[in-house]
Simulated assay, not measured.
Amino acid sequence: MNNTVQIPSRDVLKAQAKRLRSDLADKGQTISHAQALETIAHQWGARDWNTLSARTSNIHPGWSPGQRVAGRYLGHAFAGEVKAARQQANGFWALTLRFDEAVDVVTSPLFSSFRRQVNTTLNADGHSPQKTSDGQPHMVLHLA
């Protein structure tokens, strides 16, 4: 297995197996859940589901819609909820976050611009690759 590709969490892999099983059923092909898990394991280069599952044990569980989160956005603390989540290549996540309270995204004392919802990209540690001019990540996120 290629170690440069981050394996998703067990929950993400199980969801892939569920979608595979559903897609095949829509085409008239039925497979068991165990067969779907084995197929997903092979697609990720593992010999079987147990091998793949063992490789995921130390990986961040990922982000999912409805999940409560907290963190800092452009230096401002917030709490909120994941509205949408999609895993991307190389362990990155594309998220849409809905803040409980609007966040002022402007640092100027002359005006304000409040946001209640933002789209962001995060690495597996919950930090955005984009940084402010002082070197801080635009977004730092963790489970609430």
Rank of each mutant, 00 (worst) to 15 (best):
D104H: 10
Q6V: 07
L52G: 05
T56Q: 09
A77K: 14
W49G: 00
V12A: 13
I31L: 08
T39N: 12
M139F: 11
A144E: 11
V82S: 04
F114L: 10
H42W: 13
A79C: 10
R98P: 01
G75H: 08
H138L: 12
V140L: 11
M1G: 14
N58L: 08
S32K: 10
G71Q: 03
G126N: 06
A15I: 07
D104S: 07
T132H: 08
D11F: 08
W93G: 01
H33D: 04
A41G: 04
H142A: 09
F78P: 01
A15N: 15
A124I: 02
D104N: 15
N119P: 01
V105N: 04
G66Q: 09
V69R: 04
D100L: 09
R47A: 07
K131N: 08
N58W: 08
D48H: 15
R116V: 00
H33M: 07
V106M: 11
A84I: 05
L97C: 02
A70I: 05
K18C: 03
P109A: 10
G71E: 01
N123R: 08
D125P: 01
E81F: 00
N119C: 02
T51W: 14
T96A: 04
R72E: 08
A124E: 10
P65C: 03
D11S: 09
G71K: 03
T107Q: 14
L52Y: 09
S112C: 09
T132C: 07
A77Y: 14
K83A: 06
V82D: 01
R116I: 00
I7H: 15
Q29G: 04
H127K: 13
Q16M: 12
R115L: 06
H76I: 02
K83E: 06
D134Y: 10
G28P: 07
Q117L: 06
P109H: 08
G135F: 06
F111Y: 15
V140G: 01
A36P: 00
V5M: 13
D26I: 02
R86E: 12
S64E: 12
H42G: 08
L13W: 04
R21P: 00
F78G: 02
T56C: 15
L95D: 00
